[in-house]
Design a protein around this nucleic acid. Structure first.
Length: 409
RNA sequence: GCGGGUGUCGUCAAGUGGUUAAGACCUCGGAUUGUGGUUCCGAUAUACAUGGGUUCGAAUCCCAUCAUCCGCCCCA
């Protein structure tokens, strides 16, 4: 028996309405802010991700689905920012009035060990805003994320923000961390030692108790809490915070929030839920002012975020299955087809018993699946009427074939 | 890549060395043939993940493999 591949899932009929809800609300919320949907290909040149996402990241190093076809190296997209940036450049969006505001949804692929809230094929919905370096763009984008979540009925969320500063600030910060941690390296865990070389900013949110203890030391705390970002970056960050406050968006500053993709600078943020298990981030994003240039476009500041739709899905309230409007009960399939057609053309959902079983079976089925039973047996046919039964109230009326449609609601 | 849990019918689930391997839901049929979702009766199935072992005997013990779940790493 061939099964769905590890880390992939079928979205079953009874789940589809939840996914449509996520998609419809996305469209509604984002278009109100004049964000336009963009759909980019599922696979791209491998190099796009190597350069865009960054080849020091795990995503690029060990999680990409890469394959060769006619001497090209292709990769199933592990995220969509790089693809959207590529499209922005390729179609000369820099000549459009800025900012250019885009949103997307769709499947992404990462080769990882599946666990709660993590699959190999998963779906993201995200927004990207190009061409504005203003802190108002950061705030707008965060605002949209919060709006979207609220519209989905999610209110109990932790919004964390941080500023990584510009490349210069970040370098200073990195050096300072390495400096202060150096004496403790031998006491830190293996992962921390690895991070020390690869991504020192990341080291501080280690979950190993013995490491955490070390980080509590005064001189380390001083570095963590110290302000390494330059005046410009600080001003930018202050503005973002000011706007969020004006928007009534409760946020927490998390100095340890770093994010794993190489392209971020200045504002980064995450939205978390406590109901997700260990993969608790439902949204992550930030500013990426150098990515467009890195990928060969004219220098263009940008900011955006992505949400994991599977994680969203596990948080939202499940929608109940829609009941059928009308179930037609009859012993004459030719007549049934006529009336079914009328019903459907009038906008009602309608079904009947293809096997033309006995009356009792049919009404049984109707009661289980529909709001109305429309009875069209010999008597009705003879008098050119139909019997319409409201299955909730058990009320039953006999109406003429010509105006029964008005009696359904 | 590393660590841990779990694998019995479509679903849930009993069973811990000797059973025809319970039960429930779902599905289907019936309860004197035009009125239901409650009830009653009945039917259906190649269900013990796979392959090895231990044993007179294994769903039950051991090993391996696979799958799945949870955690680490990382991320949405």
């Amino acid at each position: 028996m061939i099964q769905a591949q590890k880390g992939t899932k079928d979205i079953l009929p009874e789940e589809v309405s939840d996914w449509q809800k996520m998609e419809n609300i996305a469209k509604k919320v984002f278009s109100k802010a004049n964000f336009k949907e963009i759909r980019t290909p599922i696979f791209e040149a491998t190099e796009l991700f190597a350069r865009g996402v960054g080849d020091s990241t795990d995503i690029v190093n060990k999680e990409m689905y890469t394959f060769e076809k006619s001497e090209r190296s292709l990769t199933l997209r592990p995220e969509n920012t790089a693809g959207v940036v590529r499209a922005y450049i390729e179609h000369g969006f820099s000549r459009l009035p800025q900012p250019v505001k885009l949103w997307y949804k769709g499947p992404m692929f990462r080769y990882e060990r599946p666990q709660a809230g993590r699959q190999r094929q998963f779906h993201q919905v995200g927004v990207e805003m190009f061409g504005s370096a203003e802190p108002s763009a950061d705030a707008e984008v965060i605002n949209l994320a919060v709006k979207y979540l609220n519209e989905l009925g999610l209110n109990d969320l932790d919004i964390e923000i941080n500023s990584l500063g510009c490349p210069e600030c970040r370098k200073k910060y990195r050096e300072a961390i390495k400096e202060v941690l150096k004496p403790y390296l031998k006491d830190l865990c293996e992962d921390c030692n690895f991070r020390y070389e690869k991504n020192p900013l990341r080291i501080l949110d280690c979950k190993v108790e013995s490491c955490k203890k070390i980080f509590e030391k005064e001189e380390i705390q001083k570095v963590i809490l110290g302000d390494f970002i330059c005046e410009d970056c600080k001003e930018h960050f202050d503005k973002v915070k000011e706007y969020l406050t004006a928007l009534n968006i409760p946020y927490k500053i998390n100095k340890l929030l770093v994010r794993g993709l190489d392209y971020y600078n200045r504002t980064v943020f995450e939205i978390k839920s406590n109901n997700l298990g260990s993969q608790n981030a439902v949204c992550g994003g930030g500013r990426y002012d150098s990515l467009v240039e890195t990928l060969g476009g004219v220098p263009t500041p940008a900011v955006g975020w992505a949400m994991g739709m599977e994680r969203l899905n596990s948080l939202i309230e499940k929608t109940a299955d829609e009941r059928l409007d009308v179930f037609v009960i009859s012993e004459n399939l030719a007549e049934t087809f006529k009336i079914i057609d009328e019903l459907r053309n009038a906008g009602f959902s309608a079904e009947f018993d293809y096997a033309n079983r006995k009356f009792k079976k049919q009404i049984d089925k109707a009661a289980k699946t529909a709001k109305y039973a429309l009875i069209l047996m010999a008597d009705e046919l003879k008098s050119n009427t139909v019997t319409l039964k409201n299955l909730d109230t058990s009320e039953q009326i006999n109406v003429s074939r010509t105006d029964y449609l008005d009696k359904i609601n």
